[in-house]
Design a protein around this nucleic acid. Structure first.
Lengths: 153, 153
DNA sequence: CGAACGTGGTTGAAATCTAAACTATTCCCT
DNA sequence: AGGGAATAGTTTAGATTTCAACCACGTTCG
């Protein structure tokens, strides 16, 4: 039961700044999307990933992976998106267990409008206040974090 | 209705890496704390802030601010923490509307144990996989983000 | 003074999220 | 072929979070 390797003062400051900043930033984006387009952040994320997939369609499990959501949560969220007419579920011919989620035309239209506003907010509160070198550092760092987390399972 | 200033490919990669990485990282921390100490991330955050306050005690509004939580959420969470015996509510002598949240000795003990494990996880999945220069960049960047968000209200 | 407004905090209901159980299908192995 | 383990996805129940309404006290100003 030895003493843990505590962070030094600078590491602690940096880690805290990140925890705080990222929480507030996510929160801000969520409110912004909700207020302007009636989409929560996770919903938006799902639409984005679908829009980039071939045929604007993905298997549920794959979509969950891309959108960093649990399958259960994805199921619920998709049900909501479906009832709003933004996403459609289609069964998979090969694998009878499988289900595709497909972005509808209306879903695409909603996403298109939302993305236009969203990018401005991202610039306003993130890109424009961060030094370009620091932005690249963030990209490197979180790519490494993602790799680390993936490798842990 | 002009074309928005979309992010370029590199900015997009970096922003996405951050969104993804930070989501997964928060999620990981939350699960880790829950599994080992029965504390959710927001609960842990509250205990940390209280432990650092003079008298291990803060006004609710101030605590909400420090912990980046809505007042309503803080109220609910404190009620839970109180029923676990980790936090105590005390009324404020000066301002009869006011309420102090104070960390109990048991709360402090629980936090102490949790923090020892938590710091190892933070190292394992963040500090140790990020270049020290990039860590400083993250500190700078999110400090700026926090400032920007604060100034917007 | 006292009426209007602002602040601190709580509450209840509705929405969302998590964890575990469950159904259906496919895979693997003998 | 066929029985058990694994995978895909959903569902249910319970916990947490949000949102708006609310109560109590304080502050301001005519």
């Amino acid at each position: 039961m030895s003493e843990p390797r505590w962070l030094d003062a600078a590491q602690q400051r940096d880690w805290r700044a990140f925890v705080d900043g990222s929480l507030r930033l996510h929160d801000l984006m969520d409110r912004d999307l909700k207020a302007k387009h009636g989409l929560s952040a996770p919903e938006y994320e799902i639409l984005v990933r679908l829009s980039e997939a071939p045929g604007r369609s993905l298997r549920m499990a794959e979509l969950a992976e891309h959108a960093s959501q649990s399958r259960s949560r994805l199921s619920h969220t998709c049900t909501r998106l479906e009832s709003k007419g933004l996403v459609a579920r289609e069964s998979c011919p090969n694998d009878k267990r499988g289900v595709f989620a497909r972005l509808t035309d209306e879903g695409f239209a909603v996403l298109d409008r939302a993305a236009r506003d969203h990018v401005e907010t991202v610039r306003d509160f993130f890109i424009d206040v961060v030094d370009p070198d620091d932005l690249r550092a963030i990209g490197r760092a979180f790519t490494a974090v993602n790799t680390r987390i993936m490798s842990s399972r």
